[in-house]
Design a protein around this nucleic acid. Structure first.
Length: 487
RNA sequence: GGCGCAUUAGUCUAGUUGGCCUAGGACGCCGCCCUCUCAAGGCGGAGAUCGCGGGUUCGAAUCCCGCAUGCGCUACCA
C-alpha cells in the first residue's frame, strides 16, 4: 500500500541540513512503500518567502537525489503545490468552521494582543489569549463585521478534555485542552495561518503520514482539533528530534555551515550526504554505518528513529565522504573532480586531454582526499607551472639536494621508457649509489616537480607529468637554488 | 510562568517485550607496523559508576516516582 508523504518547507532561505534530513526521511518512507513523495511550498508568510529560496531548495533536493512525484516542477493534481495559490481552499474550510461554531471572529488588533501578552509575561502570568472575543454574540459580531472592522478568525478550543497525539516516534503525548489557546486560523487580511493551511492541504493531498521536526509537536493537538471539527481522519504523525551541535545547542552557523549548498560546493558527494543524514537519528542495526541508497530504501523505518536530539558531527561526515570517494572508479572520480578544477581555472570545461589526464590521476588521489575540493591542490602541478611553496624551498638548496637534482635530471634524460616503474628503479638505484636515504633524496625531486613537499606518489606523478616537464622543472629548480645561494 | 520532549564514552549510536550487557559497533584520539611526502591500510590501546536520587524486582541502561540539566512551543512565523 502506497503511503503519501510530503516535505513542506517554508521558502525563507536555503535548505539546511535539518530540513534535508526531514525531506530524506519522507522520501525514504515513500519509496519504501511504493507511495508518493510530495513537495509543497508553505509560503503563507508572504513577507519572508522568496522565489529564489524556492529555486534553491529545489536545486538542493535534486542534488541529493530526492526527486518528488508531485509538486512544483513535477505536476500533480493539486497544483500549484504552494499555499499562496490555494487560498480558496482555506477560506472554504474557515467558513465551514465559522458556520459550525468551531471558529469565531476576533476583533482584537495584533498590537493590543502583543501588549497584553507582554504584560502578562511581565507579571509572571499566562500569556495565552484571554478569549475575550469568544463571548461576543453572533449578531453583534456580524454587525461589527458589517461595519468593516477587521477581524481574525480563531478556533474555539474546547475548555474541557484533552487531546492525545499518537506519535510514531514518541508514543502517546497528551495535551489538556485548557492549555491550548484559541489560535488564529485566518489573519485579519484573510490569509491562512500555518495550522489551518497545513491541515487543509494534508487533507486535500490525502497525506497519510506527517513526518516533521519535533518543534511541531506542540502544534499537533491544534491540528488534531481542526481535523476533528472538519470530520476528517488525521494522518499518522512522527516528530523527528532536532539536530544540535556538539555542544548540545541547536545547530546554527556557529557550528560550521548548515546549508546543504555549502556541502555541495565543498565537494561532498550526494550519496555520502544521504547516508550521513539518514544516520542522524536512525540506525539499521548495531554496526552498519555505510549504506547505499538502495539499502536505505529497503530498510528505513520510523520505529528505529531515535527520540533524542542528533548531533551534527562534522568529523564523521568527512570520514564518510572519504569512504564514498574511495568507492568511485577512475572515471567517476575524474568526472566528480572536474568541476572543481574548472572552478579554479586549472582546466577548461571542454578539455578531453585534461579529462584523460584526470582519469589517470584518479588512483593517485583517491585515498588522499576527503572532499572533492581537496583534489585541487594535489593535482594543480599537472595543470599549470608550479611555484615552489615558501616552506618547501629548503629542499632545493644545499649541496646534497642540488647533487640529487643534477643526478636525477641526468638519469631521467637517459631513461628509455618514462614509466613510473622505470623512474622508480632508476631513482632508487641512484639513491643507493649516492648512499642516501630514500626519504631524503626524493623530497627535493618532489618539490622540484610538484612545487610542494606533499604530493601524490612521486613516480606515478612524474610519469603523468611527462619527461619533458619533469626535466624542465628540475632544471629550473637548480637555477632557482643557485640564485638563492648567490643572493 | 505554563505545556511538552529529551538525558548511554569527546561524538554518532546498539541495547525494541527487564536477565545472553563482564554495556556492542563506528567517528575522533593515542601507540606500533607499512612507507618516497601525505594519505589509505593492518594491529593494539585509552575512554561510559548508562544525568542524579528513590522505588518495584531474585535481577534494571531497560519499569514507576521525584529532582536536575538541556531544548522546543507558548505569534494574526512556519
Amino acid at each position: 500500500m502506497g503511503l503519501r508523504l510530503r516535505f513542506a518547507p517554508s521558502p525563507t532561505g536555503y535548505l539546511h541540513v535539518g530540513g534535508a534530513r526531514t525531506a530524506l526521511y519522507n522520501w525514504l518512507l515513500a519509496r519504501r512503500s511504493g507511495g508518493s513523495f510530495i513537495l509543497r511550498i508553505e509560503d503563507t508568510d508572504l513577507s519572508r518567502s522568496t522565489e529564489e529560496a524556492i529555486e534553491a531548495i529545489m536545486a538542493d533536493l535534486r542534488w541529493l537525489g530526492l526527486e518528488w512525484d508531485e509538486g512544483p516542477g513535477a505536476g500533480g493534481e493539486h497544483w500549484p503545490y504552494r499555499q499562496t495559490g490555494r487560498y480558496a481552499l482555506y477560506q472554504d474550510a474557515a467558513r465551514r468552521l465559522l458556520r459550525q461554531g468551531d471558529a469565531y471572529r476576533c476583533f482584537c488588533s495584533p498590537e493590543e494582543l502583543r501588549e497584553r501578552r507582554e504584560k502578562a509575561l511581565r507579571e509572571g502570568g499566562n500569556p495565552m489569549y484571554d478569549r475575550r472575543c469568544r463571548a461576543i454574540p453572533e449578531e453583534e459580531a456580524r454587525r461589527m463585521e458589517g461595519e468593516g472592522r477587521p477581524y481574525a478568525l480563531r478556533f474555539r478550543v474546547p475548555e474541557e478534555g484533552e487531546t492525545m497525539v499518537r506519535d510514531l516516534i514518541r508514543g502517546e503525548v497528551v495535551f489538556r485542552n485548557r492549555e491550548i489557546e484559541d489560535f488564529v486560523l485566518l489573519r485579519n487580511d484573510g490569509t491562512p495561518t500555518y495550522n489551518l493551511a497545513v491541515v487543509v492541504d494534508d487533507i486535500d493531498m490525502r497525506i497519510t503520514h506527517v513526518v516533521r521536526g519535533d518543534d511541531h509537536l506542540p502544534n499537533t493537538p491544534k491540528q488534531l482539533l481542526i481535523y476533528r471539527a472538519l470530520s476528517k481522519e488525521p494522518p499518522a504523525f512522527a516528530h523527528l528530534p532536532m539536530i544540535v551541535g556538539t555542544d548540545g545547542k541547536p545547530l546554527s552557523k556557529r557550528h560550521g555551515d548548515v546549508a546543504v549548498g555549502y556541502y555541495r560546493e565543498a565537494g561532498f558527494l550526494p550519496e555520502a550526504m544521504v547516508n550521513f543524514l539518514a544516520l542522524l537519528g536512525w540506525s539499521l542495526d548495531d554496526s552498519t554505518t555505510i549504506m547505499d541508497r538502495g539499502t536505505l530504501v529497503a530498510n528505513f523505518s520510523l520505529d528505529r528513529v531515535s527520540s533524542k536530539p542528533a548531533v551534527w558531527d562534522t568529523d564523521k561526515l568527512y570520514w564518510m565522504n572519504a569512504q564514498y570517494i574511495m568507492a568511485l572508479d577512475d572515471r567517476e572520480l575524474a568526472e566528480a573532480v572536474k568541476p572543481f578544477l574548472v572552478r579554479e581555472g586549472l582546466m577548461a570545461d571542454d578539455d578531453p586531454r585534461g579529462m584523460e589526464k584526470l582519469r589517470l590521476a584518479a588512483p593517485l588521489i583517491r585515498e588522499r582526499i576527503k572532499v572533492l575540493a581537496d583534489a585541487v591542490p594535489l593535482l594543480a602541478f599537472l595543470f599549470r607551472e608550479v611555484e615552489t611553496e615558501e616552506d618547501s624551498r629548503d629542499f632545493l638548496e644545499g649541496e646534497e639536494n642540488r647533487a640529487v637534482l643534477r643526478e636525477a635530471g641526468k638519469r631521467l634524460l637517459e631513461l628509455e621508457n618514462f614509466h613510473s616503474k622505470n623512474i622508480e628503479s632508476t631513482l632508487r638505484a641512484m639513491v643507493e649509489e649516492m648512499g642516501l636515504k630514500p626519504r631524503r633524496a626524493f623530497q627535493p625531486i618532489r618539490v622540484a616537480v610538484t612545487g610542494s613537499k606533499v604530493s601524490p606518489p612521486l613516480f606515478e606523478s612524474m610519469e603523468l607529468l611527462g619527461r619533458e616537464k619533469c626535466l624542465q622543472r628540475i632544471a629550473r629548480a637548480l637555477e632557482a637554488g643557485r640564485d638563492a645561494a648567490v643572493s
